[in-house]
Design a protein around this nucleic acid. Structure first.
Lengths: 340, 340
DNA sequence: TTGAAAGCGCTAACAT
DNA sequence: ATGTTAGCGCTTTCAA
């Protein structure tokens, strides 16, 4: 931050009052067009820009949005971020962005830091730790203090606010059904995100599809791991059951790992093993064979969330909070048979 | 932004002056410990946080850094961003982040928007359009107005400021030499970033390695394309020369595409074709066969750049600007033979 | 048509 | 030990 030209300096220059300069630059009808002209010209020449801090203080608005994302190395969140960025800049808002790194403490600190006069509202996807310990007070307090929040993807009923989510149940159900319809008889599930709201919902969708098709749910072939556990070993145990011929992975990284393993075990894909995973990033697309994915349309989610927050800030929303549900799409690739 | 509790309200509550409250909360020795105690307790109970806008206005400091990145979907920049984020938050700074999307106009707008009181300094990697049109006035003006900039990766001599770069020449030279030493006789180069400073330097390094090893430079097997051109066609033309047995790709995406093509042409890798590419992202790691890469240590670059900027802001730097050069590393994988 | 004054929330120099 | 005042840069009554 710097000592740029101010209204005061311009006023001194022309020997007029600060108020006149302010009005002239804001094109007030009060001021004679002659005065306006010369002041505007001078201001332009000297690159006058109103000081944001002063405006924030005055208006109690910063035109800045706080974005809290759990992990930017995750392609879904990167995509959402792109959407947020594009929409925000289009609507005239800046972004303060933080990576919670899945940490509850970092999330709390960030909220504390930003809510007091730095930003007008938050766009948040909840950190894993927070989804586990279920302590959402930092968010609830922010809302009570008048800082609106839009939650996306990882949400909770405990916070009453606007939300944007994907239909995780339906996405998983549809994917599982696709596996069934393309001939899979025994479908395993791999989740390294069972601590997350979205993880639980996706399991639900998987079970629903099985039930719909009169297939018994077998908890033994539902692999739930935390990130530190050894995926490879667990997968090897599961895959010792050679009748398993379908795999639903709830996110990208475990899908990539499983694929490597399955290839190394010389399965024919998709003949002997079909695979579908959540999140349509570059990785599943470029791996060999390319993985059939469920796209959550991350960029669109970001755009919608931003629009919702700005509408709320500018008083254009209903009083009631709403939850927007974005439809997922199945992107068929080489790890599944085409539907006949 | 919201109407939170202020010094004034606390002052009214206790029937004392605002100044006393301010001093009490700042633990000034002026104030009696009894008063301090009761005020601090009250403040804590009511979650008092000083208003950032007011502090910015007063101190002419925002404790916020502006980050301008050309494209967040590029894994190198994502990594750098992680490093910036971590370091900034550790040093007590927030981040305002913008994606220039390789656009000159967006870059100019962002700089204009942020430099007047929103941020204390910039961390920037220059947009492609700007590197082409060579119009760096927006940055130079910002610096002249007292807003320091640290440039990373994509830099220019035209801006006098602190910089963090990778030794692109040496990285490319080393990679090329590695190809030579592992038996490649004719090494082609693919660049879709020849408009960028880093692209040009990498070509230089490639040529240097060839010259060092007495191999004639053949401009015909140096493929320079812009992003819209058809890589596949150009590659097919190049690969009709069956004596080419090595490939250096200057970034990730063209490497992935080339690999697909080369595989589809039934080359044996690395026997008939060795490949190395810049940027050690997840993609080259997980593709089959996994690609040998040159790591630029993105996260570290981000950390260093942030430290440099904060040091400059806090008056801890030399007056002279410095350029830090981060060493690249070659990560050997399946697309090259091991060095004997 | 222009200007004076107040105030956004805070700190610091200077009284009391 | 506590209070008064001024001022950071700006806008907005209200007065001239």
């Amino acid at each position: 931050m710097t000592s740029r030209i101010t209204l005061k300096k311009i006023a001194t220059e022309f020997n007029i009052s600060i108020a006149t300069v302010s009005k002239a630059l804001n094109n007030s009808p009060d001021i004679s067009s002659k005065t306006k002209e010369k002041i505007q010209e001078y201001a332009k020449k000297h690159h006058y820009k109103p000081n944001k801090a002063a405006l924030s203080l005055l208006n109690k608005k910063t035109k800045t949005l706080g974005v809290i994302i759990p992990n930017i190395m995750n392609s879904f969140f990167t995509e959402v971020f792109v959407g947020i960025e594009e929409k925000a800049s289009q609507l005239g808002y800046s972004l303060i962005s933080c990576i919670s790194n899945e940490s509850y403490d970092k999330e709390v600190n960030t909220v504390e830091l930003l809510k007091s006069g730095t930003i007008d509202g938050f766009i948040v996807s909840i950190a894993e730790e927070t989804q586990i310990n279920k302590n959402f007070n930092h968010f609830i307090e922010a809302i009570n203090e008048g800082v609106p929040i839009v939650l996306f993807d990882r949400i909770t009923d405990a916070i009453n606010c606007d939300k944007v989510i994907v239909n995780d149940i339906e996405g998983a159900r549809h994917a599982t059904e696709h596996l069934i319809k393309t001939g899979c008889k025994k479908i395993a599930l791999v989740s390294v995100i069972d601590t997350l709201s979205v993880g639980k919902l996706r399991v639900e969708g998987y079970k629903k599809a099985l039930t719909d098709h009169n297939i018994a749910i077998n908890e033994k072939i539902i692999v739930r791991l935390n990130k530190k556990e050894d995926l490879e070993t667990s997968m090897k145990i599961i895959l010792s059951d050679k009748s398993i011929d379908g795999l639903l992975c709830l996110e990208e990284s475990s899908a990539i790992q499983s694929l490597q393993l399955i290839k190394s075990m010389n399965y024919k894909i998709p003949e002997e093993m079909s695979i579908i995973c959540f999140t349509n990033g570059k990785l599943p697309q470029h791996v060999t064979p390319a993985i059939t994915t469920i796209s959550q349309h991350g960029k669109y989610i970001g755009e919608v969330a931003t629009k919702m927050l700005v509408d709320r800030l500018e008083g254009k929303s209903e009083l009631e909070f709403t939850t927007k549900i974005i439809k997922t799409s199945l992107i068929e690739r080489e790890t599944t048979f085409p539907l006949k």
